[in-house]
């Protein structure tokens, strides 16, 4: 089974929140210097799910990412885990893309890669938590989609996808090729092996530019953005403690209710 996994580079989510700064003007979050970005953990789980399928059914795993600095680090991480090929999509024209333009770029790249049975994406990226890209890729490519996948199997030539629900799961039978977004119920991704890290570090990663992709110029980059972020700020959180007293419990309760109403809580 040939699988394409789309991965995104994000600021390390383990960075203590207080270390992030905001640029209100450009509405950008500025991660602290010195801690390298990482592969989105949900995408890492998508790589893990792909590897489990490869372990069972064989095939080839190709990893795609968009990175305008042509940074290959997260693709190499996926290769070190056991993926076969990685491609970085890098072009100035991609800058400022939103989920729609990102999905357009990825869809074009997926088509260029060609043969595939399954496209996997993380359920969402841990930086903005939108969770749109997988769904839009499915729409762009007119493919069936299952979100929140926990496990995938092959039964009678069809994909059997286990989808996580709030209090259980659903099983879908899906024809190939298909798209699935992967949930964290997959569990801890494997650690890269020794030879995996060594061979990934030596591998030349192809860089594809906008021109390589047959992408629609009106669909990519900042000019294609369909939404505008109005304001970005860190909310001020205040903690206050007030002790409400009363002669009797009933009196104190009434006072408490009045106070809460005054504060607009109830």
């Amino acid at each position: 089974m040939d699988i394409i996994v789309c991965v995104k580079k994000i600021p390390d989510p383990e960075i203590p929140p207080a270390k992030f700064k905001l640029d209100m003007e450009s509405k950008r979050v500025i991660p602290p210097e010195g801690i390298p970005p990482v592969i989105n953990p949900y995408d890492e789980q998508a790589v893990e799910l792909a590897l489990r399928l490869k372990d069972k059914y064989g095939g080839k795993i190709t990893v795609l990412t968009i990175d305008n600095d042509a940074d290959t680090s997260i693709v190499k991480h996926a290769l070190a885990m056991g993926a076969d090929e990685g491609i970085v999509l890098a072009d100035k024209a991609f800058e400022g893309s939103d989920s729609f333009s990102t999905s357009h770029i990825l869809s074009q790249a997926i088509q260029k890669v060609g043969n595939f049975d399954l496209v996997l994406c993380g359920r969402q990226a841990a930086d903005w938590d939108e969770g749109l890209v997988g769904a839009i890729i499915a729409e762009n490519l007119s493919l069936p989609l299952v979100t929140l996948a926990e496990a995938v199997d092959v039964v009678d030539g069809k994909l059997k996808v286990k989808r996580v629900t709030l209090d259980g799961y659903q099983i879908f039978a899906v024809p190939t090729p298909a798209v699935a977004t992967v949930s964290n119920e997959v569990g801890q991704p494997r650690l890269p092996s020794g030879w995996g890290i060594i061979s990934a570090s030596r591998k030349q990663i192809p860089i594809w530019k906008a021109g390589d992709l047959d992408a629609d110029p009106s669909q990519i980059g900042a000019k294609a953005v369909r939404r505008r972020l109005v304001k970005l700020f860190i909310p001020v959180r205040e903690k206050k403690c007030e002790i409400i007293e009363g002669e009797t419990t009933a009196e104190a309760s009434v006072k408490l209710a009045e106070r809460l109403r005054k504060a607009g809580v109830i």
């Binding site: 020794g194 995996g196 060594i198």
Partner: peptide, 8 residues
Amino acid sequence: IKAGGDEL
């Protein structure tokens, strides 16, 4: 050495 489960 043994590293990352492999013999190097």
